[in-house]
């Protein structure tokens, strides 16, 4: 092993990294925020939301799955990439049903916080208003599928940490959706319990503890008082106490 500092450039600035770090991890560790949704510091990256997209030597790629490589030229905050990220977030808003004023997760939601960070003021596209029934069968947990962004964090947490495989994604393209591991298709018939890791990783308001929704009042929540970048940069130094975000 050589002691030589390994660096790549990020929007013209040198960024040091250690072997095995992704571009996103190295950027966060150096104090530069990279917007992300399906990335979680405790899990292997999934690379599905593409909100973390950068250009590496001119080629577009997800920074959460791309290993940092010495000498690379990485672009992050160009106007094109900012527009792209904004569009991706707007797609997510218009593909699901996101009515923040009546959402238990409002103020603690990554999608919302990334929207604020990117200056998203509307969905821009014509909303699809999909029909996605709520699963309220479980005594302690509500599954509000209208808000799922298909990041697979619950899938990963349930399989890798809880070893239960409660969640999975099914279907393709616009019909892709979250399913639970029960013949009835109902959450009540799975072995999910409120202590599971899968309960605390959803970046949006899908997997909700019942009777807890408004314990912390709107206006006093994480992203009411902090920006997504402040939280992500703190997370890079160690996940926050409640496992989010």
């Amino acid at each position: 092993m050589s002691d030589e500092r390994k660096t790549f450039t990020l929007d013209g600035q040198d960024v040091e990294f250690t072997e095995g770090q992704t571009i996103l991890q190295a950027a966060l560790a150096s104090g530069t925020y990279v917007p992300s949704l399906c990335y979680h510091p405790e899990f292997r990256p999934h690379g599905s939301c593409k909100v973390c997209t950068v250009k590496v030597n001119g080629r577009t790629t997800a920074s959460c799955t791309t290993p940092a490589t010495a000498g690379d030229t990485v672009e992050l905050a160009t106007d094109d990439l900012k527009d792209l990220r904004k569009n991706l977030v707007q797609f997510l808003f218009t593909e699901g049903n996101h009515f923040c004023p009546s959402c238990e997760q409002s103020g603690n939601c990554q999608l919302q916080a990334v929207g604020y960070e990117l200056g998203v003021v509307s969905g821009h596209y014509n909303p699809l208003f999909p029909s996605r029934p709520v699963d309220a069968s479980h005594p302690d947990v509500l599954l509000e599928l209208n808000r799922c962004i298909l990041c697979e964090l619950c899938v990963r947490a349930s399989a890798l940490v809880d070893r239960k495989h409660v969640f999975s994604l099914s279907g393709r393209g616009i019909t892709k959706h979250l399913v639970v591991n029960a013949e009835s298709g109902r959450l009540a018939d799975t072995n999910l319990s409120v202590e599971d890791k899968a309960m605390s990783v959803c970046p949006v308001g899908v997997i909700l503890r019942k009777r807890r929704g408004f314990r912390v009042p709107i206006g006093e929540r994480t992203f009411d008082t902090h920006t997504a970048s402040e939280i992500a940069l703190a997370g890079a130094r160690g996940p926050t106490e409640d496992g989010a975000p």
Partner: peptide, 18 residues
């Protein structure tokens, strides 16, 4: 100008859309 959540995305009334 679309003024407020309902003008921007339909808001609460749009929750009848399904």
């Amino acid at each position: 100008v679309a003024f407020g959540a309902c003008a921007v995305n339909g808001g609460l009334p749009a929750q009848r859309n399904h």
